[in-house]
Design a protein around this nucleic acid. Sequence first.
RNA 1: GGCUGGGUAGCUCAGCUGGUUAGAGCGCUGGUCUCAUAAGCCGGAGGUCGGGGGUUCGAGUCCCCCCCCCGCCA
Length: 650
Amino acid sequence: MNKNYITTPIYYVNGEAHIGHAYTTFIADTLARHSRLLGNETYFLTGTDEHGQKIEESAKKQNKPTQEFADEISATFKNLWDEFDISYDQFIRTTDTSHKIGVQAAFEKMVANGDIYKDFYEGNYCVSCETFFPESQLMDGGCCPDCGRVTTIIKEESYFFRLSKYEKPLMEYYEAHKDFILPKSRRNEVMSFVRSGLHDLSVTRTSFSWGISVPESLNDPKHVMYVWLDALMNYVTALGYGMDEVKMDFWPANVQLVGKDILRFHAIYWPAFLMSLGLPLPKHIGAHGWWTRDGEKMSKSKGNVVDPREVAKHYGAENFRYFMMREVPFGQDGDFSQRALIDRMNSDLSNDLGNLLNRIIGMSEKYSDFAIDSVNVAQYHQKELHDADTILATLEGYFDELQIHRYLEELWKIFTIGNKAIEEHAPWVKVKEGRLNEALATVALVANLLAKASIMLHSVMPKTTATIADALGFEITTASYKALITDKGLLAPFVIKKIPPLFPRVEEPLMQEAPKAMIEEEPKKEVALKTEDKKVSTVPSEGLITIDQFFQTALKIGTVLEAQEVPKSSKLLKLQVDLGEEVPRQIIAGIREYYSAESLIGTQVCVVANLKPAKLMGMLSEGMLLAAKDSEGLSLIRPEKPRFSGSSIG
RNA sequence: GGCUGGGUAGCUCAGCUGGUUAGAGCGCUGGUCUCAUAAGCCGGAGGUCGGGGGUUCGAGUCCCCCCCCCGCCA
């Protein structure tokens, strides 16, 4: 029996669970259930990450003891997973005592083998953002790239992990294990990052205390472990690392799921830590994509965040889960919309699957008083059985590469076989001709197809498939998996249960609240319709902005004081533009192909004055020129008559 | 700016080492059965395969140039 360990990341308790957390957890749960069905000894871990400065601060804001704050948020995650019937075997918290002991043990081992040393962490620190920034990210004059304020150089004592030492071993590992990082497209990113050179990693802080302190043996109590070392270790401390180690035989993990944003930590730091500890690396790190809503990024400020609870409440938790697993290739971003969800449910679940079940319930009721017997199936439906078993045999391979959407796509062909068989053999005709055995064989064929398919669908829709199995007189277990899938067997005679349609068609969106963007769109469409027919508005009704939104952009007239070519660039000019402010703005503009530096000096231009400063070719650009570009060339937008520098446009 | 990946039907995507009329699902549309959840089944329309050169008997598939999109890095 294989040991199979599957993990989600531990979720940071700085906010409530959202669709992204749900997605990761659904995938992991699907993998875990699938593994168990195959008969593997399976351990599924999820949990919460609770240390760090941000948690400390959030708790302070709410006037709560930090632990109490962490307890509360952690519980919201656990509750959500329980609501969704997530089959985790353990819910780890980084504040668990056993985790702390394990992390300290790991730290000691790293110290012992020379991978951790004490030095000074020196960096440009933005007091306002409370963040260190590497030299390369700073703006001109050492300003913070986020807020633009001047940063200060701070020197802080810190322990470092010798990440640089693992550059080569990591590259060798990636080379030798092509499917270590999934999807494969992400592998390139990781490798190019490592190839560009790894710096040693600062793994402790003295600036906050909400974390696991370094081992007592170091006698350095002011040092607290930095979040990633602490957090990543959860995957082995959950198995008892550094303690009793009772479950360490589950290591290495089979699949460790992560969002694409934290891939680097899991594909570089984590393997390096493991190498340092002398532990084998996980077989796969799977990085999934993000979800957008109606094509837009979700954010609290837009008010278009998808609440997994809400969707589940209106559409059903497993339908939602099916949608997420089926809709998006692993690794790609997906888009959630009620339309897409409804289409998927109606087409796949209602029409293909649900209706098929209903068809044989109806026929068996009329032809045999619900009795179904596989006895003649092989005789009349050799071809269908063969086709179905062939498809079923190929499915496993998709799971190996986390291609759950392809898995489901293939699985659905079983239902097409069933629907076609009914059509082709028209049991109602056979019955009229007195060939009852043949008619019943077709019904029994479809019952078997549904049974086999529901076994394979079980990991995605556990409860729904259990209901189907119940109607078909069997249970989905490792034993029935072996009998019906592996051994290609058929159902024993049974009496089918008449159940109401499993997936009623959804005709209209069931969730009332529309995202703000949609609400605002409605009236505009009406206006466009009311316009007289002869003058049909040519303004597109979508993507309109309000006057307030327009004025969020500060457009100003500027006078070019200086202009010079940027060395090594064929496109860029460096300009000093007077916007009526104390100091002229430096603007880097990509117009060298169309304007010479001399020709610009003294002329006026239109400038976006409140653009976030950006660095181009290492130079700060504090604004953008307006210009019109087409296939013929580019032309700057200028005031028709001279205006004072800094005049606003609008 | 550097490096990946990609640009194929209305939408989402498949097309391995170049080879008959470029595929699937959804959507649209015509027909048809009646066991079934206005479901099923059969058929159809719809693509100058991002643009331009080139190699070849033959290129979506190889080479060069250009444009655009996503991602990672800077």
